[in-house]
């Protein structure tokens, strides 16, 4: 049952240097990604999930800097063991990007080059990854239809397409080099619910057919319930809970996960009252003492404000970082 390991993130720490001080955007995050797995990464905006997404492609640029941790990629089948992504340079890095790991960016409306036709933005990445131009050209239609687009739109410029169509183009581009991992950073945020649903189904279908792994980043835990195999819940630069979807969604162990669940509507299921989470995330410029969620947590007690809880295995595969490790309802 255990799938093969594809990517291993160990104790990743990322800072941003700003005039106002250093922001600890990602504070020690570890994550295993296995082949053919869909991982949901959930958290409020500003929790560091987009920064984490950039890490997979070594796209952290100043003022951001990686101050600690490892990223190991196991996808090269050359018997030489894992590759450290942070040490990739020049041509090797260029070939790693998109051919091994590709990305669907947040707000694809702005991530397409406005002066290039859709097909050219699919072809250029293939040519630069050593596909013959002939092959690249003939494959444009294939990738567009995989992403649920009518191939006839390939001659269009981005501004001629609707938001949902641009998103599909971004998915098509992400598929072009048959990567082993796709990072999808809030790919459906700006879209209406119907299109959102279609795109989610598309992604799931792609995993089933191509066996690609997907890291799906969202702020909406309900979106991911039907899609992901595993869920990582991130708060203030840290993973506070992780585990199989069925476990985490049905029996959330961390109060923050529980709060996220009650703050979002379910697609199916019974009507329920939606509760916002009072308060706001901590200032990441300050050193956080104790549990970062404690100030907003209804169950917090003395210890929560002094000591920082570590992730603890509760059941096989299900971890949470909370001193009050019992069902929170």
């Amino acid at each position: 049952m255990a799938r093969e390991l594809l990517m291993e993130l160990q104790d990743m720490q990322i800072n941003y240097r700003t005039r106002a001080g250093r922001i600890n955007a990602v504070r020690s995050v570890s994550m295993d990604i296995r082949k053919g797995e869909i991982i949901g990464l959930v958290g409020e905006s500003g929790c560091g999930k987009s920064t984490l997404a950039m890490t997979f492609l070594k796209l952290i640029m100043p003022p951001g800097e990686i101050v600690g941790g490892k990223l190991l990629y196991y996808g090269y089948d050359n018997g030489e063991g894992p590759v450290s992504v942070m040490e990739l340079q020049g041509g090797k890095l260029r070939r790693y990007r998109w051919k091994e790991v590709s990305m669907i960016f947040q707000g694809s409306m702005n991530s397409l080059n406005p002066v290039m036709r859709v097909e050219d933005q699919i072809i250029d990445v293939m040519i630069d990854h050593d596909f013959p131009e002939e092959e690249a050209r003939t494959n444009v239609d294939k990738y567009l239809s995989m992403a649920g687009m009518d191939p006839s739109t390939k001659r269009s410029y981005p501004h001629q397409l609707s938001g949902g169509m641009k998103q599909r183009v971004a998915i098509a581009i992400a598929l072009t080099c048959s990567p082993k991992l796709i990072i999808a950073d809030e790919p459906t945020t700006a879209l209406d619910v119907v299109v959102q649903k279609q795109i989610m189904d598309q992604l799931k279908g792609l995993r089933d057919r191509l066996g690609v792994s997907i890291v799906f980043i969202t702020h909406d835990i309900a979106v991911i319930g039907s899609l992901a195999d595993l869920i990582y819940v991130m708060y203030a630069g840290k993973i506070v809970e992780s585990g199989p979807v069925s476990e985490v969604c049905n029996r959330p162990r961390h109060p923050y996960t529980a709060a996220l669940m009650s703050a979002s509507p379910t697609l199916k299921g019974e009507k329920k009252r939606l509760n916002g989470i009072p308060g706001s995330p901590p200032d990441l410029k300050q050193t956080i003492v104790g549990c970062s969620f404690a100030p907003r947590c209804p169950f917090a007690f003395e210890r929560c404000h002094i000591e920082e809880p570590q992730l603890k295995m509760l059941e096989p595969g299900h971890k949470a970082a909370c001193f009050k490790l019992e069902d929170v309802k």
Partner: peptide, 11 residues
């Protein structure tokens, strides 16, 4: 944003 994407694409 499209510059970031271009970098990510490994062009």
């Amino acid at each position: 944003d499209y510059m970031l994407m271009a970098m990510a694409k490994g062009l």
